[in-house]
Amino acid sequence: MTASHNWPPIDPADGWALILTELQRDLERIDPDLVMGQVKQKFGTLSVSAEASDPALADAVHGRIAAAEALSARICERCGQPGRIRQRPDGWYQALCNRHALEAASEMEGES
C-alpha cells in the first residue's frame, strides 16, 4: 500500500492545498509505505501525524512534515496567500491573510 491510499482527500479550494500536495508527493518519495495518521489544523498551523515504515526513514519523514507545518503558519488557510497566525474572538487560532482575517472577524460578529 502506498501513502496515497491513506491520505485524506486534498480540497483544491483549501488555502493549504499546495503545501499538502507537495508534502504528499515528497513523503511518497521518501517512504512509499508511510502510514498516515491525521491531517488537521491545530493552533493555527497544519498538523500532520504519520509513521515511517522503517525507523531509518523517520528523521526524513518528520523533518519534511515539520517544514510543511512551519510553512503553514505563514500561508492563509483559506486562500493560500501570505498570512500569519491570528487569534479569533472565540479563542481559536487560524493562519489568515488580512482579507480573510477581516472576513473571519465579521463572521464572528454576525454569530453573536
Rank of each mutant, 00 (worst) to 15 (best):
C76S: 04
G44L: 01
R78K: 14
I75L: 10
K40D: 06
P82C: 13
Q87N: 07
E103W: 06
S112L: 15
L46F: 03
A66K: 14
G80A: 08
A105T: 11
A95P: 05
E107V: 08
P9M: 06
L57V: 04
L71T: 07
R84C: 05
A105S: 12
A3I: 10
H62C: 01
P55M: 03
S4K: 12
A104C: 12
E51L: 06
F43Y: 15
P9E: 11
R88F: 01
V39I: 13
T45V: 03
M36F: 12
H5T: 07
A66F: 03
H100Y: 06
I75E: 10
Q81D: 15
G80C: 09
Q38D: 13
Q41P: 01
T2W: 10
A73K: 04
G15T: 07
L20P: 00
Q41H: 11
L102R: 13
A73V: 06
Q94W: 09
R29V: 07
G37V: 05
G37C: 07
G110F: 09
G83M: 02
G83Q: 03
D33S: 13
R88G: 01
T21M: 05
S49M: 11
P55G: 09
A17Q: 14
S72W: 04
A17Y: 14
E107C: 07
I75T: 15
Q24L: 11
M36A: 11
S4Y: 13
P9V: 05
S112V: 14
V35N: 10
Q87V: 14
A67Q: 13
G63W: 09
A105I: 10
H100L: 01
P32T: 11
L23H: 00
S112E: 14
L23S: 00
H5F: 04
A70S: 12
E28P: 00
L27P: 00
G110I: 09
E107F: 10
L20A: 00
Q81C: 07
G37I: 04
M108G: 04
V48C: 02
A50F: 03
